[in-house]
Nucleic acid binder design. Structure first.
Length: 708
RNA sequence: GGGCGCUUAGCUCAGUGGCAGAGCACCUCGUUUACACCGAGGGGGUCAUAGGUUCAAAUCCUAUAGCGCCCACCA
């Protein structure tokens, strides 16, 4: 027995050494697996953004995927886990910009070329750091295939995808109201907004009605509109009421004198107006509100762009506020209206405001010339994939989130006015693509699409399809089997991968989607770096070891429920590792040269031994079943219970005064079986113990054969 | 406004029709050579509330309350 086999178990002495041995073996690459006689089993790691380091969610997700990959590898599949990182457009640009700001440099001072160099430097540093952290977790990824969403070959995939959409007429350019982040200076898609509740005011403002002639009696000489954004008065081009609202029936068609601007605008009837809200009269600002834009279109109203891309009032807003910031203009307008005695009432009002998901600045709807991808056909593909059951979510309830979004989808604004990203491959456009445009291609772009394709024409769908070249990765490893990811990117990413896979590869990119738990603080708050409520998985690894950290994460993942993080389960994992360590020492000391790796259960006569083997068998079955159902926590509980209660407390105690070959064989066989079954969950310690067995079947436990 | 999830021991959570469970914490005993990161034993719960179905409800149904999340054209 190895003299390292001292007590207690020390993960630090083991984990790095074992990981290096695994890497050296080459077995993370399925091409090198000695007995992979079953089909390929592929998982594409959701590429972490290069914006920082890994958090608990990444750690949980890496563990889940590693469990699946390691189990399949041991079962004889050509197991491939493709790792990589995402360039994460706006997020990365912002973080590098912040970095520069500390040195008092703006990206504009630096210039585009130099700035992009800085980002590439950042990418090298943090990209490597992230991959290093995945290794510390024990992730058995094939690093030789590591991908990055801005690698040269990946860029080719992005261009091919764009071209194919363009050739089909699904990409178009248009001046439309988009979500605009003045701080980032770019458009955003609907999914890139975060809404937060803000306390504000609702102002009731009097708009006077123009007298047409003296013969027409008018009941009031003004009407009252309610608004939360008085500064947009400057861009009003109508006032609208509900056509069925009896109160305002006579008003439809009348002319209103817009305050401050003194512009004449009509009263229109539109179904978008709710009779019950506010006064039932709404001001219409077609350039700066999505609903108002629709009303404007229906009534052919002019759109005055009064707010510009920097969040300042434009010339078109008039001399009154020209050049002011939005908030300044609001103050000024309110002051003026008060002077004119046009504010009837000012009341407290809470409403949700759209914020940029990357910088938290307020997003302004404004008209802008952008590129769009037509979604109607693509959405159909993604909907069908889930409704037909070809793609399944676990837990299933997330399918609703996916389908609800796809069924109400709008065209996707794919252009961004930032520097870091894939340039739109059209002459004269400086825009880059939404970072999710490239992420959407991940499951096949990482495997060599489109280089490994022979294009074939599909008349039915009038599209060029990819027929994967034989022998290449794409033919061999696409589609992947499972995707495991966080719930907040179901639509942002999962849905887009599904239709992209079908559109370009004619095959869903995966059949099963695991939506793993979200990890919250103990009192149910979001873990956040800025609030200091986050927990760094690397610190846990340092304190308790990677196996214990993985144990703690999985122990708490039950049925996809959110996890209120409790560190004591990681400590339990550390104790369990130590228990296993001592069990192994006992078994190895006791059995010595009699250690056997195979037994014939039928030959065992001893009653307690037969009983243990029965329980061992049912534990194995139960664990396999649970993993197949993605009930990882349940599987670990079952295994833990067997090892500690049945094997250690009962059988090992029983075996102490027995010295028969029969008992020795049951002890050794049970230990080996436990190591194999537990290896996907706690790979380091199980591998280390395996290395100390007197006779073993394989070079590494990682490639030991197990049956399912 | 719509949707989803949760509420079980001090804490974190399993348990989906048949005697209330685990980990941690707590108490008692135990320096038996695998392990004190241990072993043997123990205390502790009106299963959010109200009503219903059933021989039987933590579990199924209805309503209510609280917590959390998501979506929406919240003027």
């Amino acid at each position: 027995m190895n003299e390292e086999f001292n007590k207690p178990y020390d993960p630090k002495a083991v984990e790095e050494k074992i990981y290096n041995e695994w890497e050296k073996s080459g077995y993370f690459n399925p091409d090198n697996l000695p007995h992979a006689d079953k089909g390929p089993f592929t998982i594409a790691l959701p590429p972490p953004n290069i914006t920082g380091t890994l958090h608990m969610g990444h750690a949980l997700n890496a563990t889940i995927q590693d469990i699946l990959i390691r189990k399949k590898r041991m079962e004889g599949y050509k197991a491939l886990w493709i790792p990589g990182t995402d360039h994460a457009g706006i997020a990365t640009q912002n973080i590098v910009e912040k970095q520069l700001k500390k040195e008092n440099i703006s990206r504009h001072q630096l210039g585009k070329e130099k700035f992009l160099e800085k980002i590439w430097e950042w990418k090298e540093k943090y990209g490597d750091m992230i991959l290093g952290q995945l290794k510390k977790m024990g992730s058995s990824c094939d690093w030789s295939r590591a991908a990055f969403t801005m690698n040269p070959q990946y860029s080719k995939a992005v261009q091919s995808a764009f071209r194919q959409y363009y050739d089909k007429g699904w990409i178009y350019r248009g001046e439309r109201i988009v979500n605009w982040c003045p701080r980032c200076g770019t458009s955003l898609s609907d999914l890139e907004l975060e809404y937060i509740e803000e306390k504000s005011k609702l102002w009731r403002i009097k708009y006077s009605i123009k007298k047409t002639n003296n013969l027409q009696p008018i009941t009031n000489d003004f009407i009252v509109v309610a608004t939360a954004r008085p500064e947009t008065i400057l861009g009003d081009s109508a006032v609208a009421v509900n056509p069925k609202d009896e109160r305002y029936k006579d008003l439809i068609g009348k002319i209103i004198i817009l305050p401050i601007q003194n512009r004449e605008i009509p009263v229109v009837a539109d179904i978008a107006v709710e009779k019950e809200f506010g006064t039932g009269v709404v001001k219409v600002t077609p350039a700066h509100d999505f609903t108002d834009a629709e009303i404007g279109e229906r009534h052919k109203l002019p759109a005055y762009k009064i707010i510009d891309e920097r969040g300042r009032m434009t010339v078109e807003s008039g001399e009154f506020c020209n050049g002011l910031k939005i908030a300044e203009c609001r103050e000024k307008v309110i002051k003026k209206l008060k002077e004119l005695n046009l504010i009837e009432k000012e009341e407290d009002h809470t409403h949700s405001v759209a914020k940029c998901y990357r910088c938290e600045g307020t997003v302004e709807p404004l008209p802008s010339l952008q590129w769009f991808l037509k979604m109607s056909e693509l959405a159909k593909l993604a909907i069908e994939a889930v409704e037909s059951g070809k793609v399944r979510f676990h837990p299933q309830r997330w399918e609703k989130v996916y389908l609800d979004w796809l069924k109400n989808i709008k065209d996707w604004c794919i252009s961004r006015q930032i520097w870091w990203g894939h340039k739109i491959p059209i002459e004269g456009s400086e825009d880059v693509l939404d970072t999710w445009f490239s992420s959407a291609l991940w499951p096949f772009a990482t495997l060599g699409w489109p280089a490994q394709c022979e294009p074939t024409t599909d008349d039915k769908r009038q599209t060029t399809r990819c027929k994967s070249k034989e022998g290449g990765d794409l033919a061999q490893f696409y589609p992947t089997q499972v995707l495991s990811t966080a719930r907040d990117i179901i639509n942002l990413w999962v849905a887009r991968m599904v239709y992209s896979g079908i559109e370009f590869m004619d095959k869903e990119p995966f059949n099963n989607v695991i939506i793993h738990a979200t990890i919250l603080t103990k009192d149910g708050k979001r873990m956040s770096k800025s609030l200091g409520t986050g927990i760094d998985p690397m610190i846990l690894i340092d304190k308790y070891g990677a196996d214990a950290t993985r144990f703690g994460l999985i122990w708490q993942s039950m049925g996809g429920q959110d996890i209120h993080w409790a560190e004591e389960h990681v400590m339990a994992g550390k104790k369990f590792a130590n228990k296993l360590w001592n069990i192994s020492r006992f078994v190895l000391t006791k059995t010595g040269d009699s250690f056997v790796s195979k037994i014939d259960a039928g030959d065992i006569k001893d009653e307690a031994s037969r009983e243990l083997l029965k329980k061992l068998e049912s534990t194995k079955e139960s664990v396999n079943k649970d993993i197949d159902n993605y009930d990882f926590g349940q599987a670990l509980h079952t295994l833990y219970n067997f090892v500690w209660k049945e094997f250690a407390d009962k059988y090992i105690e029983y075996s102490k005064d027995k010295n028969s070959e029969e008992v020795f064989s049951v002890l050794s066989f049970s230990l080996l079986t436990v190591l194999k079954t537990l290896h996907p969950f706690m790979p380091f310690i199980t591998e280390e113990i395996y290395q100390n067995l007197p006779n073993k079947n394989a070079e590494f436990l990682m490639v030991e054969e197990i049956s399912n």
